[in-house]
Design a protein around this nucleic acid. Structure first.
Length: 906
RNA sequence: GGGCUGGUAGCUCAGUCGGUAGAGCGUUGCCUUCGCAAGGCAGAGGCCGCGGGUUCAAAUCCCGCCCAGUCCA
């Protein structure tokens, strides 16, 4: 262990070994155990560890102030939606997430150094324990003081960190004699380092991590340049230990819980809750089985039955869950998560639906948004930015609640249907496969199935490992092997298109080659990136023109791809003249700036929750994916289009500036990363005044007027919560409008009306067509009846059965009607009709069936005579062949076949 | 990103092995009634999500797309 312990000694701590778990720890007082559960039981419930009681917000305030007074700069919380600045995780799980990967890798300066932050963090891995253990939460506040130490700038390291922690605990009134520092090792996110876990009265309050190495793919550790002090103080636990409430929830969500209890009319036995939290504190609870054990132990200690325990704790658990989940949702939705069936949106929906389930269990007659409003009012006290999104969040909540109810009622039908099916098949238990399918495909949890099945008097058994079995159903997908990034050992290519965006030609020297790519010292070719395709064009070398089909960036080097055989004659040091395809570049540039305009316009029209979730620019058309909780209406689309074009007409100047990343974030906020995560320590900020500001490396027009025109062509729902807009810019926009105009005119010309009359006319024609179709059907029936009249008298008697075979000039549908009516209404036993086109149908009566006439087989063979095939049911069959002229032979065959099958039985 | 469902009359849904597209509710007319509720009889209402393919024949099988739902990472 590389921890320096001098500071602890100075503070009066000595090192000991825990007699229970064997871990090394430091303490002032003599003691045998390390201070963490289960070695030590909670000893603060009903007996606070501090004289002063702190609620969550005041401890947060004190924490920040304490470190500010000691040279730390307070930093505002980051959005919990981590994908705003990184693409490897969905949600922020700890304060250090805010500084990964740019700051922690040393590429970017931290926003301040040292700094202090109170960061709402979301961890959903043990969502099932929330409300039940007294300490688990989906969302907690991590207080962190961080220092980033490099060779040039050493801020502070282990000694200072330990002292800060010790001092802070003492500051709020915790007796240092009760503090233990447990030595441990931390690994996470590819980094590792020694750490201390700080415990008081059986509960872990904080972790002090000293990140100093990187874990290599092979598992070995490599020292990193930047040494980071990463501390995490569980602020809810500080509130808990200072108040001594039965659970951490009581201490953290105070007013919200009171409100909920009042609404639900719940009374609680605090002793039971306290005992429950106490026992839970000593357990590592991972699954339902652990929860059952917990219940059993608590019941034992209280001398009551498990049923009694559950009876009295369940309503309170539901309240805790609702309080916790609504807070988690408040942060998620306010920070821009849109509930969905994928990615972080799915996590939000999961939490949201759990909340509704527990509201139902509690019998709350309120809507989710009503509860949410209470929670948000509470949160807004400390996080005023939450209030700005309140209206949006509540709207989404209402929508989601409706969706959930729809899903549930659909599910109920589904379960009923499935059970009926099983009953029909005389099964007396629901197969596991059905249970899995109901959950996996239709979202009905097995518990719900069980509940519904009970009403139908149908037994359902749920295996304990149900969710594991579901997981097994999902076939493991092959892990994608990450290719080692290609590294080219050349100086960075100078990107001329940034300095001289209007230049079309340039001079350069060849520096080298890689495969079929040419490396130059400088270039005007924009390499593919940021959703913008690469430029194409020519390189002229000694009078020879080589076509550049693609340009891509490898590190900071641009590779110009040409045909491999063209490279053979080239040498390093040769000078070249480059020329980019200007029409293409211009089109791509227009499309790119248009993308910014449309996203900004959508934000204006639809709301601040709109973020770009992906984009692809093209020459003729481009697309952007927007986060939005419902379909974009046509009127809204028009408004977006008008606003975007208004900005085009305003001819606003587009400016680009290179800025330090942290500086840019401070100036503009995360809205910068609208277009996705941008790499590097310096970023290029593209700004359209009063419209949009984004970190973007693409090419842009000088003034919005250069775009000419933006036309949105269509929308598509690529997934729940993400709407895709397809649009064109510049000339392509005109072409696309002309194309739709042509389609419209052509369509109108079909009806010989003006485009304005088209909708009405098309509607009329469609309705008339339907009416005619029905008339035809009716008339066919009448014609069939008439033809039938003529036929019924012409039956021959064969083997005691009435038999008709005839050629008629009729269509298939008519013939089918005729034969069925002949059999059903005219007492004909066997009717076979053929048409000159080669269609043949036949029907038989019950009597004929009993006599063994299988008309489907006969027709099949008769159609074979016609050079085709056929078949059907024993009562009715049809077939056809291409050689209609052979119909007499076919009917002759039918006669023989019928005679044969009748005689066979006689 | 991957998996799994579903899309049939205004609504809720059946539709087996490819072989005449169905039920209930609603709706229209008539009968019954002093009137209403209810009942009886008769009828209207279907591009079987869209586009291809296979087949003598597709709501049904295959491929692609659109729309919706759901589970997982």
């Amino acid at each position: 262990m590389i921890i320096m312990s001098q500071q602890l000694e100075e503070l009066g701590y000595t090192k000991k070994t825990c007699k229970t778990c064997g871990n090394d720890f430091w303490s002032i007082k003599d003691r045998d155990t390390c201070g963490d559960a289960p070695c030590d039981e909670y000893s603060f419930i009903g007996n606070p560890a501090t004289r002063q009681k702190y609620d969550l917000f005041s401890i947060q305030d004190i924490f920040t102030r304490f470190f500010k007074e000691r040279g730390h700069t307070p930093i505002r919380r980051y959005p919990v939606l981590a994908k705003r600045w990184r693409d490897d995780v969905f949600l922020v799980g700890a304060s250090i997430y805010n500084f990964q990967p740019w700051v922690t890798s040393g590429l970017v300066e931290p926003p301040a150094n040292p700094l202090v932050i109170a960061q709402p963090s979301i961890r959903l891995n043990d969502v099932d324990n929330v409300g039940r253990t007294g300490r688990h939460m989906t969302c907690f506040t991590m207080g962190g003081h961080h220092a980033f130490n490099s060779n040039e700038n050493t801020v502070y390291w282990q000694d200072e960190t330990v002292k800060y922690c010790h001092d802070f605990l003492a500051h709020i009134g915790i007796d240092p004699k009760e503090i233990t520092f447990i030595e441990s090792w931390w690994e996470g996110g590819g980094n590792a380092g020694p750490c201390y876990e700080i415990c008081v009265r059986g509960v872990e309050l904080a972790t002090l991590v000293f990140i100093q190495s990187r874990i290599l793919p092979g598992g070995e550790k490599e020292e990193i340049r930047l040494k980071i002090v990463d501390t995490g103080y569980g602020l809810e636990r500080f509130a808990w230990i200072s108040q001594g409430t039965p659970t951490a929830y009581d201490a953290s969500f105070g007013p919200v819980i009171d409100h909920l209890m009042e609404m639900a009319g719940v009374e609680v036995d605090k002793n039971i809750l306290a005992e429950n939290a106490q026992v839970a504190g000593m357990m590592d609870i991972e699954d339902i089985a652990d929860l059952k054990t917990l219940r059993k132990r608590v019941a034992n200690r209280l001398g009551i039955s498990i049923d009694e325990l559950v009876q009295s704790t369940r309503p309170m658990e539901a309240i805790y869950i609702i309080a916790d989940h609504t807070r988690c949702l408040g942060f998620m939705l306010a920070d821009g998560v849109i509930p969905s069936n994928v990615k972080e949106g799915y996590l939000a929906r999961l939490v949201l639906r759990r909340t509704i389930r527990f509201m139902k269990e509690l019998g709350l007659q309120k809507s989710l948004s009503e509860l949410m409003a209470i929670q948000m009012d509470f949160l807004s006290q400390t996080y005023p930015e939450i209030r700005n999104h309140q209206e949006h969040v509540l709207r989404v909540m209402d929508l989601e609640e409706k969706r959930y109810h729809k899903t549930i009622s659909k599910g109920q039908q589904m379960v009923k249907k499935s059970i009926n099916h099983l009953k029909k098949e005389k099964k007396d238990d629901m197969p596991l496969g059905m249970l899995i399918k109901l959950y996996d495909s239709h979202g009905i949890p097995p518990e719900t199935v069980e509940e519904l099945a009970l009403k139908e008097n149908f037994p359902v058994t749920i295996p304990d490992n149900f969710y594991t079995l579901v997981a097994q159903e999902h076939s493991e997908e092959p892990e994608e092997e990450e290719e080692a990034p290609l590294e080219l050992n050349y100086p960075d290519t100078e990107l001329l298109f940034y300095q001289n965006p209007q230049d079309r030609e340039f001079q350069a020297q060849i520096l080298g080659f890689y495969e079929n790519g040419i490396i130059l010292n400088q270039t005007l070719f924009y390499p593919e990136g940021g959703g913008q395709p690469s430029d194409i064009g020519y390189l002229e070398i000694r009078g020879e023109r080589l076509k550049v089909s693609h340009a891509k960036k490898v590190g900071a080097v641009v590779l110009h791809q040409v045909k491999p055989k063209n490279i053979d004659n080239l040498k390093e040091g040769m000078s070249v003249k480059g020329q980019v395809d200007w029409q293409r570049r211009l089109a791509l540039t227009r499309n790119h700036t248009s993308t910014h305009l449309i996203v900004a316009a959508a934000r204006h029209i639809l709301g601040d929750h709109i973020w770009q979730a992906g984009a692809q620019k093209g020459v003729n058309k481009s697309r952007i994916d927007l986060s939005h909780y419902k379909r974009v209406k046509p009127e809204e689309l028009h408004q977006i289009e008008i606003l975007a074009n208004q900005w085009v007409m305003d001819n606003r100047k587009v400016t680009t500036t290179w800025m330090d990343r942290t500086e840019a974030e401070k100036t503009y906020g995360f809205v910068l990363y609208q277009g996705g995560v941008v790499p590097g320590s310096r970023i290029r900020v593209v700004q359209i005044p009063d419209v949009d500001v984004q970190a973007c490396a693409g090419t842009h027009v000088r003034c919005t007027g250069d775009i000419g025109l933006v036309k949105i062509n269509k929308t598509e729902r690529i997934q729940d919560g993400v709407e895709r807009l397809e649009f064109s810019a510049g000339k392509a926009a005109i072409l696309s409008m002309q194309e739709s105009e042509t389609q419209l005119k052509d369509s109108a010309a079909v009806f010989k009306v003006t485009p304005a009359q088209l909708p009405k006319t098309a509607d009329r024609f469609f309705n008339e067509w339907k009416a005619f179709k029905n008339d035809v059907k009716r008339l066919q029936g009448q014609v069939a009846a008439l033809k039938k009249e003529g036929l019924s008298g012409k039956a021959e008697i064969m083997g005691g059965l009435k038999f008709i075979r005839k050629t008629v000039d009729a269509e298939m549908a008519e013939m089918i009607k005729i034969v069925t009516e002949l059999v059903q209404k005219e007492n004909i036993d066997i009717a076979v009709l053929g048409s000159p086109e080669g269609n043949i149908v036949g029907a038989t009566s019950e009597k004929a069936l009993e006599r063994g006439v299988k008309i489907n087989e006969i027709i099949k063979e008769a159609a074979g005579v016609l050079g085709g095939g056929g078949g059907g049911k024993p009562q009715l069959a049809q077939g056809a062949g291409k050689e209609g002229s052979k119909m007499p032979e076919a009917l002759e065959f039918v006669g023989q076949a019928v005679r044969e099958s009748l005689s066979r039985l006689l």
